[in-house]
Write a protein that binds this DNA or RNA. Structure first.
Lengths: 240, 240
DNA sequence: GAGTGGTCTAGACCACAAT
DNA sequence: TTGTGGTCTAGACCACTCG
């Protein structure tokens, strides 16, 4: 099989990573070095490196160089374990912090109104929260909530937990539908999570309902790069 | 906020998709048209389109043009529903087919041996299967199984179901650990699934054990582009 | 033949890091 | 000052599709 020049370079770097010639958080050859040693233009060498950045193998630092990404030491998230961010982080001995970036009342977009099952002129809370672990931003959460369902919600309460607020009001979630989506984040998400480069990451979209079937929230969650592994354990299943 | 030229073009196309000016499976402006109307070089226009392809908004056909991806009409996969491929497809009124691309005995790589908990000189089955729906390849499955655990496995049996084989032998899976991973597929995966372009997709890696805790398989599953939605429904949870 | 996307070149200027 | 990555240009040749 014939490869393009940039595919040759990609494979060269990948082999170097697999054989541990290029170690985690150490440099791979610069774009100019690669261009010279493969006798290609710098743009071709760049294309190879950029591809490996997007695929999660490398990261770049302007003015410094290109480095091998360390994908070990990620935190595990079990899909069936209903545990909140704060408790999960504390259990692992780290320090969680929640930053409420935005808390305001808006009218929903057409898409959001449809998700919430309301009309476009009803008010909603628009809430952006950033979850930090040891002061590093790891999760961006964007929540849309109908004001009529949670009329007395305050910014102070949202700093803690949406679900603690529910308990206080003697409500609870009766059903939650989650969709797991592989994405490359857009500019806004990259900015909020301090990611300077495109790379694959995890998005979860969820809708949760209360006991009376009213929709409590429509939420999008973006999980920072390879800080997380998403696991599911199934016991004694009746597979296939 | 100042945007680069290719980001301007990306946003222009995205707005056109959101406002339905560019409709599903219809063309967006060609690279040359965009280069002209934005007064940039063709390479810059290309960079914008390529980014949107990787992010799953567009697809390109050489010699024809660049089209808006239709992300509706995807099949739902429920993470908690333990149902096999064949039954799930038939339930939706479509025709499933399994192609056994490779079935051979090998020695495992270091990584595979570690996953299977065996030594590098024990034999394993290496199995590549491609799942088709209505003759379109949608899932690539790569399985590693220790021969000593399933010594009498045949290619004929693997054409049907791994788990039917287990039942025949009066065994069953006692535990399955799955990891969900967002990836951009490599060349080999793209070739087998007939994908001509880089784009985000879903990978599942799983390890399943039998009642005696022996490891039955280590399997990687690649789900074709946006043919699938991965959903999870949680009822009456004790959230956060 | 005209238009499309795919690859590639040989430059350029910039912002940023390190020394 | 040197080296790095980030953006961008103005070409080129190719393979493919379609009329």
């Amino acid at each position: 099989m014939i490869l393009t020049k940039y595919e040759e370079i990609e494979n060269f770097i990948l082999k170097g990573i697999q054989s541990n010639i290029y170690k985690a958080d150490e440099k791979v050859p610069s774009e100019n070095k690669l261009a010279e040693s493969f006798a290609v233009s710098r743009m071709t060498a760049r294309k190879a490196l950029d591809s490996l950045v997007t695929r999660g193998y490398l990261y770049k630092i302007k003015g410094k160089g290109t480095y091998v990404k360390d994908n070990e030491n990620r935190d595990d998230i079990y899909l069936d374990e209903m545990i909140g961010f704060t408790r999960r982080v504390e259990r692992s001995g780290k320090t969680p912090r929640t930053e409420v970036k935005t808390f305001e009342i808006r009218k929903p977009s057409r898409k959001t109104a449809a998700k919430l099952g309301i009309s476009r002129n009803e008010d909603i809370f628009y809430i952006e929260r950033i979850r930090h672990i040891n002061d590093e931003p790891v999760i961006l959460e964007i929540t849309y909530m109908p004001v009529k369902v949670s009329p007395d919600l305050t910014k102070e309460e949202i700093k803690k937990s949406k679900y603690a607020y529910l308990r206080k009001r003697n409500h609870r979630i009766s059903e939650m539908v989650k969709e797991y989506i592989p994405v490359i984040p857009n500019l806004e998400v990259r900015k909020l999570l301090l990611l300077d480069k495109n790379m694959v990451m995890f998005k979860i979209e969820l809708i949760s309902k209360l006991e009376d079937s009213s929709i409590f929230e429509y939420t999008k969650l973006y999980y920072n790069q390879n800080k997380y592994r998403f696991l599911q354990i199934t016991k004694s299943s009746k597979v296939d």
